[in-house]
């Protein structure tokens, strides 16, 4: 489903990613672990084109990204197939939760208002938040917001989902409810890449674990072997 080969990226003098290669098959969950500043977020953001890179190549969900600047059209097509969930949720503050979920299907896929709303409600149902369809994101708890963010990304029916530390801004109780949703997705066969510090989760849900340190892959393999 995705292949990263010899990816290299620098911020001015600092080499953030250094010859990184990994692959993930369809239906697998890849956990990205490593100390702070090791380049996990950068790698994840390269996967959906939020960052450019200096050398190497990425293929993901049938799209190919080369080094240097990306063409906007390519990125828009790629991102329909690659969803992302952020550490800080980044829900659209001016829209109700159901409109947060329904926006991209309507605007990007051209669904009618009724169809996109139906899809929004169905996904809110799936993350257990249908009752909050008309609430403002700001009135929800962190865990609820992150579940809406997951529903929002799923609304595009992406082939790959990227999670950047989806629970590190949450307290343990809310972490559990969000992790529950992600584990559920894994069971349903969703291909995912999850940046996490939570080794328990990695052991439980990840098919493979990739450990980065100072921009290099230091270990990768089955969760049980690496951790």
């Amino acid at each position: 489903m995705f292949t990263v080969s010899s990816l290299t990226k620098s911020w001015t003098h600092l080499r953030v990613l250094d010859d990184v290669s990994l692959t993930g098959a369809e239906g697998t969950v890849t956990a990205l672990v490593g100390p702070s500043g090791s380049g996990k977020s950068t790698l994840l953001r390269c996967l959906n084109g939020l960052e450019t890179f200096d050398a190497g190549e990425i293929t993901i969900a049938g799209h190919r990204l080369a080094a240097g600047p990306h063409a906007p059209g390519l990125l828009e097509r790629l991102r329909r197939d690659v969803g992302m969930v952020f550490q800080q949720f980044n829900l659209f503050a001016h829209l109700s939760t159901v409109d947060n979920v329904a926006l991209a299907p309507r605007v990007v896929l051209g669904l009618s208002a009724a169809e996109s709303r139906a899809r929004g409600l169905e996904l809110l149902d799936r993350v257990g938040l249908r009752a909050f369809a008309n609430a403002r994101p700001a009135t929800l708890s962190g865990g609820q917001q992150q579940r809406v963010a997951i529903a929002r990304a799923l609304a595009m029916r992406p082939r790959v989902m990227l999670f950047d530390e989806p629970t590190s801004a949450l307290d343990p109780e809310m972490t559990a409810e969000v992790m529950g949703v992600i584990v559920e997705l894994a069971r349903a066969g969703q291909t995912m890449v999850v940046v996490t510090h939570d080794h328990g989760f990695a052991r439980r849900a990840a098919s493979r674990v990739v450990e980065l340190a100072a921009g290099r892959v230091v270990r990768q393999g089955l969760a049980a072997d690496v951790l």
Binding site: P72, R80, G83, V107
Partner: peptide, 25 residues
């Protein structure tokens, strides 16, 4: 900035993100 990145990550173009997310806010 996260609002813009979230919009782009959903496949919205720069102009769609402006029209539907950034400008209304």
């Amino acid at each position: 900035l996260g609002q813009f990145e979230a919009s782009l990550s959903l496949g919205l173009s720069k102009w769609q993100a402006l029209r539907h997310v950034l400008v209304p806010q």
